[in-house]
């Protein structure tokens, strides 16, 4: 549950975004810019948060009135092993030290819905127990604790946003879901589903996550909020929608179901209470925008042929300072 500590009519603070090279950062930058905010987006080329001395470097960039958003991290497609976990924790350690030194006005951590284990509840919410089922989920839980403790000690208002599966134009990942389906539909005219693709997920459009983060900054919100849509669609439904977007026939392949069918449904009450005017992008609209962005004329088509490991974000700039 979130608590707001500032009138939404107040001017937005300058925002420092960690993870400039990620999927969310460019969209968040555009959103903040559209609302008249100033910002600084820091990527690995400026500060490698896994390296010694990173905390001091970072602290030097943060001013007392800033809001800081941490969207930096190595996602599962970069590795699911212990080394990746430890690298991610080193990043959190560096940020925690920097926060304690620089004491910004607000800190917001972009976590993940992976922290919940859906086996124990048919409807998850912000109060559901965090029960990490893999190292990636454990990483987010540990980071939440590390950063939360740092903020508590330094008395920095702290918020956690836990998005479900994010998709949209500029997606740098190739996880099972809309982004992979869109690329394979364009490249090979096929979409590969596990089994019948029954598993239901909240597929959250990246612009909606950026808007939620901006609203949290605007309200100086503290607490935890899940970035969810209110509707869980099955992978099969997503595949059908994407197939319908393509003019050519798209073949939907059904691979053997390798794992038990699980669903992840989320309760939107906390979101409705915190930001009643927020409106999630309809899945069909979000997929349409994502599909359009992957067309050759969009400039993002290069992504469609890139292998996951070599993919780069839509913007090559890893550091951006916007007015």
């Amino acid at each position: 549950m979130l608590q707001h500590h500032r009138s939404p009519h107040s001017p937005l603070p300058r925002t420092v975004i960690l993870g400039a090279g990620g999927f969310l950062s460019p969209v968040l930058q555009r959103n903040l810019q559209a609302h008249g905010a100033t910002m600084m987006a820091l990527g690995r080329s400026t500060i490698d948060l896994t390296k010694p001395g990173a905390s001091a470097e970072l602290a030097a960039h943060i001013q007392p009135d800033d809001a800081v958003v941490m969207a930096a991290g190595l996602t599962p497609d970069k590795g699911k092993d212990t080394a990746t976990l430890m690298a991610n924790l080193r990043m959190a350690e560096a940020v925690a030290l920097a926060l304690q030194h620089s004491r910004p006005a607000h800190f917001l951590y972009i976590s993940s819905d992976a922290v919940y284990d859906a086996r124990w509840s048919s409807l998850l919410n912000e109060e559901s127990a965090c029960e990490p089922s893999d190292l990636y989920a454990l990483m987010h839980v540990a980071r939440e604790k590390i950063l939360g403790q740092a903020c508590q000690q330094a008395r920095i208002p702290f918020a956690i946003v836990r998005p479900c599966a994010i998709y949209g134009p500029g997606d740098t990942h190739n996880s099972y879901g809309p982004n992979r389906f869109l690329r394979s539909a364009l490249n090979s005219r096929t979409i590969a589903l596990f089994g019948a693709g029954q598993e239901r997920r909240h597929h959250v459009f990246v612009d909606d996550v950026a808007e939620l983060v901006r609203q949290c900054i605007g309200h100086a919100s503290t607490g935890v909020i899940n970035a969810v849509t209110g509707h869980a669609a099955s992978f099969g439904e997503v595949a059908e929608m994407i197939a319908a977007l393509a003019a050519d026939n798209i073949m939907i392949d059904h691979l053997p179901q390798s794992a038990p069918v699980t669903h992840r449904h989320f309760d939107t009450r906390a979101l409705a209470l915190a930001f009643p005017s927020l409106q999630a992008t309809e899945l069909a609209d979000g997929l349409r925008q994502s599909y359009a962005a992957l067309q050759p004329a969009s400039g993002l088509a290069a992504l469609s042929s890139a292998s996951p490991a070599s993919q780069k974000p839509a913007t090559k700039k890893e550091e951006a300072v916007c007015p």
Partner: peptide, 20 residues
């Protein structure tokens, strides 16, 4: 607690709350 917010959930889902 969950059911208490049923109406809010319906309003939220309907999009009627977009215009404050």
């Amino acid at each position: 607690m969950y059911r208490k917010d049923w109406v809010l959930g319906r309003l939220f889902a309907s999009g009627l709350l977009q215009n404050t």
